[in-house]
Write a protein that binds this DNA or RNA. Structure first.
Length: 206
DNA sequence: TAGGCCATCTGGTCCT
DNA sequence: AGGACCAGATGGCCTA
């Protein structure tokens, strides 16, 4: 299979015309090093039923900007070749990959500092953020308590209103008091344990 | 098999 | 002008 990538191409006669560029014909070895799992297709593989929908949504977004400065107009002004555009796109992809990797690294570091029960699977991103938020709120409460001030955050028992699934929303609502009660619905076991650990960690530090 | 989570691509917009 | 940031789209993997 040849290394093909669908790219958006515009020229003087057609705006945003899609065509396929043979990446083997473009020197990209020094860029990404590896190819993506997605958006690689063979010529003629246009049977994708979601293609038209995708195009419609894309164009909808395209029209969001001001009409006087469309990307097509800009591309026309730039007057760069399709090959050059492909190269720039690949460079942008690589930068975006690196950016997302650094973001994931930050998530990993955050996971390491949040007290939580070690699970066979790692915390998802939304779980990580939610636990971090709860942890910050709990720490803030501890600080205020030590100062003799009123605790700004209350952790309300929202168990009754939860449907019982393990959606991230439940994580957000679950609090320390809920954890203390040791509520044992199977689906909330992880969150409960995590918050218990959080509370224990706080007490240890006091 | 459906749904959740994720990585990646992509194009628009913002910022320097 | 070019890079960073962002959000939508897509497909793969995994689990209940």
């Amino acid at each position: 299979m040849r290394n093909l990538e669908r790219v958006s191409v515009s020229d003087q006669d057609s705006i945003d015309q899609e065509m396929y560029i043979d990446l083997d014909d473009v020197s990209v070895d020094s860029l990404s090093g590896k190819r993506s799992r997605t958006h690689l297709t063979e010529v003629g593989d246009e049977s994708d039923s979601s293609g038209s929908e995708r195009g419609a949504k894309r164009s909808k977004r395209r029209n969001r900007g001001t009409s006087s400065s469309t990307s097509a107009n800009r591309r026309r002004k730039s007057g760069i070749s399709a090959r050059e555009r492909t190269l720039r796109r690949l460079e942008s992809n690589e930068r975006e990959r690196m950016r997302m990797h650094s973001l994931n690294d930050a998530f990993e570091q955050l996971r390491e500092v949040i007290p939580h029960v070690k699970m066979e699977r790692k915390l998802s991103k939304i779980e990580t953020l939610t636990l971090a938020k709860n942890y910050i709120m709990a720490l803030t409460n501890v600080i205020c308590e030590m100062r003799g001030e009123e605790q700004p955050y209350t952790f309300v028992d929202e168990c009754g209103s939860n449907s019982g699934d393990s959606s991230p929303g439940q994580l957000e609502l679950s609090g320390l008091e809920q954890a203390e009660e040791g509520e044992s619905s199977p689906s909330s076991a992880h969150e409960t344990n995590n918050n218990s650990l959080l509370h224990e960690d706080l007490e240890r530090r006091i």
